[in-house]
Design a protein around this nucleic acid. Structure first.
Lengths: 342, 342
DNA sequence: TTGAAAGCGCTAACAC
DNA sequence: GTGTTAGCGCTTTCAA
């Protein structure tokens, strides 16, 4: 732990610029932060000096003074190998881009196994970040409620399931019931009538949400759902086993899945049986993962608008200082990307 | 741009701890940074106070004073959809974990399209990070040489191709020729003799490196390579087209590919022709991507030891302050993950 | 072994 | 409009 990395040649400071421009340090500070306050020619002179020296305000000093680091903390969960839905990665990309536009950088910290709150706590106490974006609200909101109790600024990607109405923090989420309905409608349009659902275990609230989209669409078209649904672990193997059972017992012609991982399980079983996805049996997944995009013949999948979500989250973050009315929740609509599997 | 996020309740400072423990601020600082200097009972008293208040040193203040942010900058390139090899994502995970162990956090910044150096420059001038980890050394070393000219501390994930011997900065790379050889040997063992290569364009030095692993292994077993190689863009469509051409003209029974993306192109063409990967034709990819792990029947792939690479990079970073001898380069060995496609 | 003084680079508050 | 003063929380230096 902790030797110190070699140091850079000291960059120019406010004082250097001030001297070169023949003004006071404060005037340089104003030129950077409140240019309107300066007379035109002074501003020009200072800007020329800034340019000449390649001056950039020192972050640590500014941070210390303003109590704002312009850093957003994001906990990055451990890698999940063998599972298709690496949604977090696409989200990170989107977030880095949108937050940079708003003048923020993303500070990544690891998701420690034992104590989910440890990383947040440390960054909070050391005032390393201005706010957090919380993504792991799926299982429960322990992190959210802890952050709230610490009065830490944060916004959540994911609904506060405990208390969806009277949320005490802003959140952004994807209407995944609508996504599942979209996939189901798509298959119905294609002429399928026996459409199976493979989803997550009942405890998983997002899973139940998605499932309701499927059953809603089915009922809207007076199609049967009995015996056509299963709830399993989110792994390829479970998806495959569920497919086998459903094919044997319920004779579906199409599968709507709660995740690309499960949909890949379906593809595996079809492959093993010599059935052709998209021709013999239709399949849809959820998340438009890399795997969905690349697996032959292409996996139809529900795509979450992560770029929009990231933008809304950053916007919400900036609103955190505003009037402390009831915080807003935003529900975004997913889209369907149709490919060869349907 | 840039409204400021609402502020936290001010955390305790060194002074608070000092008062509670009945010592000077300096003693508290020593308790944190040089505990050996304190008498045992003083240390215990201070630590109790730290514990009680939940004190953590303010990062900005410490940064300002020590000129070290304990942040490592990583430029995150734009997302590449539809391509399998999202190596950067697994790397980010690995890096966040290992750098946290060394007391560093990762600061992500976007890869701006026009000026590859812009993001680095800004962070450097504002002394926002202690060092960079550079990953985009594939195309050339413009970023590396720029950083060097600015005397910025950095280590590279990827060889300095311009000047591999007398490198002026530490680097870590994967021996990808060995990886391609590994895959080729594996297929030879399985009894294949006509093994085709699908790789990247000649300009791509890593691609040529990988190709040499294939041809080396082939020659070592006196197997033919003539007419069995092609160089294409790194896309699924190109991989597919190359496969079609090779199947028609050279009758290979196996394909070694420079990337999982190209290997998926092979799978697509096989799928279209009704050929079964792993039974009729063997295929191997490179990077052990999510897609390789999940596509039926599993894509055999060369796996880069990214976790080890991240660890070596962080270690090299810590050595950056040390004696300024000739910086080290480290070449790590990949492994082969065999799956159904071979 | 502990404490006092100084200052890192910046901006908020105020005086001119 | 511009300059002066003070101080954010910490560590380095030096004195006790």
């Amino acid at each position: 732990m902790s030797r110190v990395i070699g140091r850079l040649a000291a960059p120019p400071t406010l004082a250097d610029v001030a001297e070169l421009a023949g003004v006071s340090r404060q005037t340089v500070s104003n030129a950077v932060n409140n240019p309107d306050l300066l007379r035109e020619d002074t501003l020009a002179r200072v800007q020329a000096a800034i340019e000449e020296l390649g001056y950039q305000p020192n972050r640590a000093a500014r941070s210390l003074r303003t109590r704002s680091s312009r850093l957003i903390g994001l906990r990055i969960p451990p890698v999940q190998e063998g599972t298709a839905n690496a949604l977090i990665d696409r989200f990170v990309h989107a977030l880095v881009d949108t937050s940079a536009d708003a003048g923020y950088h993303i500070l990544l910290f690891p998701g420690e196994a034992g104590d989910p709150v440890a990383g947040y706590d440390e960054l909070l106490r050391s005032t390393a970040v201005d706010a957090f974006i919380v993504t792991d609200t799926l299982q429960g909101d322990s992190v959210s409620s802890w952050l709230r109790s610490r009065r830490a600024p944060f916004v959540a990607f994911g609904r506060p399931w405990e208390n969806p109405e009277g949320a005490t923090h802003p959140w952004v989420d994807i209407d995944s019931a609508a996504g599942a309905a979209l996939a189901t409608e798509h298959l119905i349009e294609k002429g399928h009538t026996r459409i199976a659902w493979i989803g997550w275990r009942r405890e998983h609230l997002v899973g139940e949400e998605r499932r309701s989209g499927w059953s809603r669409a089915m009922h809207a078209h007076s199609l049967p759902t009995t015996g056509l649904a299963s709830r399993v672990e989110d792994t390829i193997a479970s998806g495959r086993a569920a497919t086998a059972a459903l094919l044997n017992e319920a004779a579906p012609t199409a599968f709507v899945c709660a995740s690309d991982t499960l949909a890949l399980g379906v593809l595996h079983e079809l492959h093993a049986r010599g059935l052709r996805p998209g021709e013999d049996i239709a399949v849809t997944g959820f998340d438009d993962s890399i795997a969905a995009q690349t697996v032959p013949p292409g996996l139809t999948s529900v795509r979450q608008p992560l770029e929009d979500a990231a933008a809304e989250l950053v916007k919400a973050l900036e609103g955190l200082q505003g009037p402390v009315g009831s915080p807003e929740g935003i529900l975004l609509q997913p889209t369907l990307v149709a490919r060869g599997s349907s």
